[in-house]
């Protein structure tokens, strides 16, 4: 354990608190993934780890290396920006894929296609259906 002796006390304590906070949030997200029942509930749980789990550990790294190098070192922000941008993209694409797969299999638990699509289908063929034929 070479670097910790060189850290000032405030930096060491701040790093310890932030590392523990980030890891605990990530663990809570993982337990949520185990406990939730359906996929669309489960897709929310890991974002606890990708938002403040990642953020707190990255902040701890920034504090630790800035105190070690006695100058501000903020290149960890790059990982934070990248994770923040990519996680919603991945999860929205995955949720749409899951919705598509459920609809293909006629799962009754997922909502039907949007009202806009259904209305345009009805407008395209108004005669077919509920009105009885005249004459």
């Amino acid at each position: 354990m070479t670097p910790a002796e060189n850290l000032p006390a405030w930096a060491a304590l701040l790093t310890a608190v932030l590392v523990l906070l980030g890891a605990a949030l990530t663990l809570v997200g993982a337990i949520g993934t185990l406990r939730f029942g359906s996929f669309f509930e489960r897709v929310h749980a890991p974002t606890l780890g990708t938002s403040w789990g990642t953020g707190a550990i990255l902040l701890a790294s920034v504090v630790c290396f800035s105190a070690l190098g006695s100058r501000p070192i903020v290149h960890e922000i790059m990982i934070g920006v990248f994770i923040t941008i990519t996680t919603p993209v991945t999860l929205m694409l995955l949720a749409r894929a899951a919705l598509y797969r459920d609809r293909v299999e006629d799962d009754a638990n997922v909502p039907p296609r949007t009202m806009l699509r259904r209305r345009s289908v009805n407008a395209a063929a108004p005669e077919s259906g509920d009105e009885p034929p005249r004459g």
């Binding site: 910790a4 850290l7 304590l13 523990l20 890891a23 663990l27």
Partner: peptide, 15 residues
């Protein structure tokens, strides 16, 4: 404080 940092990092790795 070095020991606190070491053990909290180890606990974080375990979590």
């Amino acid at each position: 404080t070095a020991a606190i940092l070491l053990w909290s990092v180890i606990a974080a790795q375990a979590m």
